[in-house]
Amino acid sequence: MDINIGINEPKRKEIAEGLSRLLADSYLLFLKTHNYHWNVTGPMFQALHTMFEEQYTELFTAVDEIAERIRSLGEFAPGSFQDFQKISQIKEETSHPNAEQMIKNLVLGQEAVTKTAREIIKIADDAHDEPTVDLLTQRMQIHEKNAWMLRSLITK
């Protein structure tokens, strides 16, 4: 059945492509944050272990919301790690950095997701896609706050 939600098909596809990048970035940040939760060591272990868990749990919920918005626009959401790696600006963690480097890497990841959301919001706003604008605004607010909280832990 055709989709008739007041956004034409080319715009829906363009928005969904942007949301697919956001989904990929969010999923790889989720994976990195979960990895760090498991592998963090050092004097800040308990605080970081707990913070990382809160952040990856929130990201797990977010990826579902983003994928469902893509589907609401009539497109298929990417769902494989291979697909995510192709379109994400966040790279998989293959080493075991120390706690401070983990924090720095996560700040960069949080900022990257924020920038991806910010790139899409104008497209969604121009198409009068308020549900996507709302989703993106919420994502930016969460990632900016997370980046601030992580950045606050860095002493240098």
Rank of each mutant, 00 (worst) to 15 (best):
T41N: 11
N98Y: 02
K145F: 02
N35E: 11
F52P: 14
T132Q: 07
T155S: 12
Q55Y: 15
G42C: 05
T155P: 01
H128W: 09
I121L: 11
S88Y: 01
P10A: 02
E17G: 08
D25I: 04
D64N: 01
W38Q: 09
Q85P: 05
W148R: 03
V63Q: 05
L150W: 02
V107G: 13
E68T: 02
R139Q: 12
D134S: 10
Y27E: 02
E17C: 06
S152V: 10
Q55N: 15
S72Q: 15
E14Y: 00
E14A: 09
L135M: 03
P43S: 07
A127T: 08
M149Q: 03
N8L: 00
V63K: 06
L23N: 07
G18N: 09
Q85F: 07
D125G: 12
V133T: 15
N146R: 13
K156E: 14
K122T: 14
G109P: 13
E93Y: 03
V40L: 04
E75V: 13
L153N: 14
N35M: 06
G79M: 06
F52I: 11
D64V: 00
F52D: 09
M1R: 01
M51N: 15
R118E: 10
V113S: 04
E58H: 15
E58C: 11
R139G: 04
Y36A: 06
Q101A: 05
G79Q: 04
R69C: 08
Q55P: 14
N4C: 02
A77D: 05
L28I: 12
S152E: 14
S152H: 11
E9V: 00
I121F: 10
K156A: 12
S152N: 14
L106W: 08
Q82G: 13
Q85M: 13
I120E: 06
E54W: 09
T61Q: 13
A127E: 07
K156T: 15
E119M: 11
Q110I: 10
K145C: 04
Y27I: 10
S26P: 08
S72V: 12
I70N: 12
R69Y: 01
E111I: 07
R12C: 03
D64C: 02
L29F: 04
A147L: 00
L73P: 15
E111S: 11
R151N: 15
I121W: 07
A127H: 08
F52K: 11
T116W: 07
V113M: 03
L106D: 09
E75W: 09
R118L: 06
P131R: 04
G6H: 00
E144N: 08
E54Y: 10
R69N: 08
Q46Y: 06
Q138E: 14
G42Y: 01
Q101F: 00
S88W: 01
E58L: 14
W148F: 05
H37F: 12
S72E: 14
I5A: 01
M1V: 00
L23I: 08
H143K: 08
L73R: 15
N146G: 15
S152M: 14
L22R: 10
N8C: 00
T114R: 12
Q141F: 07
P43Y: 04
Q82R: 14
F52S: 10
H34C: 06
S95F: 00
R12L: 02
S20G: 09
Q55S: 15
D83I: 00
I7H: 00
D134N: 13
L19K: 08
S26R: 06
W148S: 04
A112E: 13
R139P: 11
M44N: 13
L136V: 09
